[in-house]
Simulated assay, not measured.
Amino acid sequence: MTTVRAYAATEENGLLEPFEYELGSIGPYDVDIAVESCGICHSDLSMLENAWGMTQYPFVPGHEAIGTVAALGDLVTNLQIGDRVGLGWHAGYCMTCVQCLSGHHNMCGTAESTIVGRHGAFADIVRAQAVSTFKLPSHLDAPTAGPLFCGGITVFNPLVQFDLAPTSSVGVIGIGGLGHLALQFLRAWGCRVTAFTSSGSKQQEALELGAHDTLNSRDPAAIEAAAGSFDLLLSTVNVKLDWNAYLNTLKPRGRLHVLGVVPQPLDLNVTPMLFAQLSVSSSPVGSPATILKMLEFAARHEIKPKTEHFPMSKVNEALDHLRAGKARYRIVLDRE
């Protein structure tokens, strides 16, 4: 039996406190990862607050883990003890449904989340299936790579999913944990990139991260002036916006793709969408194959999350920093 030392909350929106639990015998396709660092995603905060109504307590967050392989199941062939690996939102898939067999594992109806119904990576050990555990390319910076496995793949997935042309004009709405990575990926992809941000302090940073232009998202006149400009809009925000104003910035056959979890229904005028053949869509994280493409692409183009670091023992301070909207742009917990 392996004793795991973690940080867990015992109640809704409670403080994370030291917590120990025992891992059973390792399964034939499982991997135990000795955690070196773990990013904090807004989804960790949503789960801590039980905002989605599916949190089980005690709750150990953490699904952007970097570490080394500490133990392997007998049938694992793609990894070795000591490999530095990453783990994201999914900890396993059924491997037998049509979605898995088609390569769309992220659409598996019984996929296991790293932090839903199991304990995550705010811990010294986290367990997952080998198929959802990825060897880190040597050129990637391991201490900052964790957020690629959730935030990074979330914004990279649509580029592959929609076979985005490198000549596309793309707007990124919201320059935060997701948006700052989207700017980097899109610029390296070859696109013309515009950052929509309500923060004056982020405009120069957006340009440094890869945007060619910035647009004040609080200025209706500026949004109106951008009519017919974009092939694709990636929305990374989790608040209600004037979605019809943003649809008006799309070219004919353009697409608004929603990546942030917006709690309110989208209020859309269908008539202009119909005549311009516009689309509205959404997607979660990507499949294992797409994650591998993302890692290769990030290594080749030296794309890395911009991170702030806290020791894991300061996890509650780190969560408060995220709650206050102060993160620039992803927070990573480091094991002491």
Rank of each mutant, 00 (worst) to 15 (best):
T2C: 13
A8M: 08
A9W: 02
E11R: 15
L16E: 11
E17A: 14
E22L: 12
P28H: 15
D32Y: 10
D32H: 15
A34R: 14
I40H: 02
C41H: 03
C41K: 05
S43V: 00
S43K: 06
L45F: 09
G53Y: 02
G53A: 05
T55M: 03
P58I: 07
F59M: 10
I66L: 01
T77W: 04
I81R: 10
I81W: 00
G86P: 04
W89L: 06
A91S: 11
A91M: 01
T96N: 08
C97N: 04
L101A: 14
M107W: 13
G109S: 06
A111C: 09
A111L: 02
S113P: 09
Q129A: 11
T133Y: 03
L136I: 11
A145F: 03
N157G: 02
P158C: 07
P158V: 05
D163K: 10
S168V: 06
S168H: 09
S168Y: 10
G171P: 08
I173P: 08
I173F: 09
G174R: 00
L178C: 00
H180A: 05
L181R: 00
Q184W: 01
A195V: 03
A195H: 04
S198G: 14
H212C: 07
H212Q: 09
L215H: 02
N216D: 15
S229K: 13
V237Y: 03
L241A: 05
L241R: 07
A245H: 11
Y246G: 03
R255L: 14
R255K: 14
H257W: 04
Q277T: 12
S279Y: 11
S281G: 09
P288L: 05
L292F: 10
L295S: 01
H301V: 07
K306E: 15
D320Q: 14
R323Q: 12
L333N: 07
D334Q: 13
